[in-house]
């Protein structure tokens, strides 16, 4: 295969993140960062055409927008307006699925974006709460974690920014919109489809063993007897990624 069509790890990550949007229909998809953004655009260009996606600023865009490009590139046209005020209105309305990062995440999906160490005097100040508390109790959330390691997948997060399943359950009815659908990493795909909503290994990317994922996870991961391999991108998907969505190969540099 030529380097252009050779499938690399980043492609499996993008496809796995795109799969997180499957079935969402006409909702506002908010993938944060290049790899999730490529995934949203890929999902919309193939099996999930109803997704509403922006240029990463405040314009909803119809067509296939390349990463890093502005509205108009590749024949794209504006189809809507999504300033921050409308982002909050939409996220409280609930028709949204966000893909965020996580500096730490535990087995119930509690996520920390805020800081490492005690909140009162952090060892490392990170992003702060951002929108994680509101996102996670209002609509579907997935996570993209490019560095699957025990430092990220921890027994207990230092600060809970995004709400996990145990805390959502404790809230009861008021947390009925909570859903953490997927956690996609450089090693595989995780979900919470277990009886007690603890994290489960859903698939490993080609070339990764189950043992590697378990070793890179700092808590007991639910591992089914047979763990599938993350599906390959189709030829159409690879074509879209190479020629339209990520012609500069930005995703490959991040995985």
């Amino acid at each position: 295969m030529s380097p252009d069509t050779e499938i690399v790890r980043a492609d499996h990550c993008v496809v796995a993140l795109a799969e997180a949007f499957r079935g969402d229909g006409e909702i506002f998809a908010s993938p944060m960062g290049n790899v999730p953004m490529a995934a949203g655009r890929l999902a919309r260009a193939t099996f999930e055409p109803g997704l509403l996606l922006t240029d990463g600023i405040a314009t909803a865009v119809q067509g296939v927008l390349p990463l890093g490009a502005g509205v108009g590139a590749n024949g794209t046209v504006p189809e809507g307006w999504m300033p921050f005020r409308k982002v909050f209105d939409t996220l409280w309305w609930g028709r949204r699925h966000v893909i965020m990062g996580a500096s730490q995440i535990d087995r119930f999906g509690n996520q920390n974006l805020s800081c490492i160490g005690p909140w009162e005097k952090p060892k490392a100040m990170l992003l702060g709460m951002r929108g994680a508390p509101g996102n996670t109790v209002n609509h579907t959330t997935s996570y993209w974690i490019p560095n699957h390691s025990p430092r990220v997948f921890v027994r207990e997060v230092d600060v809970v920014s995004g709400v996990g399943y145990d805390r959502a359950a404790a809230l009861g009815e008021v947390a009925r919109f909570h859903e953490i659908r997927r956690v996609v990493t450089n090693l595989g795909v995780l979900d919470f489809e277990t009886a007690d909503h603890t994290m489960r290994l859903r698939s490993v990317h080609p070339g990764v063993t189950v043992g590697e994922v378990v070793d890179a996870t700092g808590f007991d991961l639910a591992v089914p007897e047979s763990v599938p391999v993350t599906r390959d991108p189709t030829a159409e998907e690879i074509g879209l990624l190479r020629t339209q969505i990520d012609p500069d190969g930005l995703c490959g540099r991040e995985v």
């Binding site: 508390p133 600060v159 909570h178």
Partner: peptide, 13 residues
């Protein structure tokens, strides 16, 4: 009133 903050450490800190 809002749901944002419920269940997170926003209420703890």
């Amino acid at each position: 009133p809002t749901r944002a903050g419920l269940g997170s450490d926003v209420l703890r800190i």
